[in-house]
């Protein structure tokens, strides 16, 4: 039992760091950075569940992020649904879309799955671009409402009036996502997902209905992407199709790989580094992007397991067996 509670230490650490962050680095700029980092923690952790743990090379994550964003915003602006109901519906829509796409693609493997999900993702973007009467096409939608407060009367009440409160909301969801993926990865169910990644044929002949498991992981992961979209869109106050195209998926994948695939904490390290690094490099944007490219290549060659794997290796020299920074799922 003592062992178990130590294992939860990084989660407590993340909670403390996230709560203290606005005090240590005050100001709108840093709050914005914190919100974006939290957003990418949600997106990469959930992709890690699909791609890292279950091993499904599906590149449509940004589309589900977009379904969450467009779904909830359109419900509010077109049908006048109260925001928090629309928010929940956006997540649900992302889940339904994932069920449909997953059911028709998850029998594919490797590059076939990658390109087929990519095709779905591009079709979604084309739909947003061309269904102008609904989505206003490539011009996107400007969001003019502030999400109303929510809470249970008499118990608690949460207002989203300020950037600071938005930060706490996004951070809470990031924490919940990391916690969920960690919990799932260590459950019986998570073991099976890992088994499917390692040898699907063996899992199948051992009596596991692998397609259902893959579909479950895919849907759960995609619903978190939907949650990210539905929550982040009003803060961004503007959504457009190209925010959710395949380049966004690729960006999320990149964060996951740099942070460390299959590690519970990799997405956290990756999001912090890749969101803040371009801001920190105080050089012209062109040079910055070139440096960025070089960093990607170097990290992938020198640290194939990403930052999490690297930190684990350094730490295990100091304290053998330590996996605080990585915690392979």
């Amino acid at each position: 039992m003592a062992r178990r509670s130590w294992q939860a230490l990084p989660l407590v650490g993340l909670l403390a760091a996230g709560m203290l962050y606005p005090r240590l680095l005050p100001g709108d700029y840093f709050l914005h950075l914190g919100i974006v980092v939290s957003l990418y923690i949600i997106l990469t952790s959930s992709l890690n569940l699909i791609m890292g743990i279950t091993g499904q090379f599906a590149i449509a994550h940004a589309a589900f992020y977009g379904v969450g964003a467009y779904g909830s915003i359109l419900l509010v602006t077109r049908l006048g649904v109260p925001y928090w109901w629309a928010w929940a519906a956006g997540i649900l829509l992302a889940g339904i879309a994932a069920l449909i796409i997953g059911a028709s693609t998850l029998h594919l493997k490797g590059a076939y799955l990658a390109i087929c999900t990519f095709a779905f993702s591009e079709l979604f973007r084309l739909l947003l671009d061309n269904w102008i009467s609904l989505t206003n096409g490539a011009n996107g939608i400007i969001i003019r409402f502030v999400p109303p407060p929510f809470g249970i009367p008499g118990l608690f009440r949460f207002e989203l009036g300020s950037r600071r409160s938005y930060y706490y909301l996004m951070f809470t969801f990031a924490l919940v996502t990391v916690w969920f993926v960690r919990r799932l990865a260590r459950s019986d169910l998570g073991r099976v997902l890992g088994a499917i990644r390692q040898d699907e044929t063996l899992a199948l002949t051992a009596g596991f209905d692998t397609r259902r498991y893959k579909l479950l992981a895919f849907t759960a992961g995609s619903m978190f992407a939907g949650l990210a979209g539905a929550t982040y869109a009003p803060y961004l106050s503007y959504i457009a199709p190209d925010l959710f195209d395949v380049n966004e998926t690729i960006y999320i994948m990149m964060i996951m790989m740099i942070g460390g695939i299959r590690s519970i904490w990799g997405p956290v390290w990756g999001s912090i580094l890749l969101v803040s690094l371009p801001q920190a490099l105080d050089i012209t944007p062109l040079l910055r992007m070139i440096a960025y490219g070089l960093v990607l290549i170097l990290v992938m060659i020198r640290m194939p397991d990403g930052l999490a794997g690297f930190l684990d290796r350094v730490m295990s020299r100091l304290r053998p067996g330590s996996t605080w920074f990585g915690q392979k799922a």
Binding site: F57, A111, M253, M254, L286, I290, G293, L296, I297, M300
Partner: peptide, 29 residues
């Protein structure tokens, strides 16, 4: 670059993305 990531399709993919960033921005410059 690529010879360090052969048949590591995710690592190779990220390397190729790094190359995209470098080549595009050099051309842009």
């Amino acid at each position: 670059t690529f010879r360090f990531a052969r048949h590591e399709h995710l690592n190779g993919l990220v390397i190729s993305l790094g190359l995209v960033a470098i080549l595009q921005n050099i051309a842009l410059a």
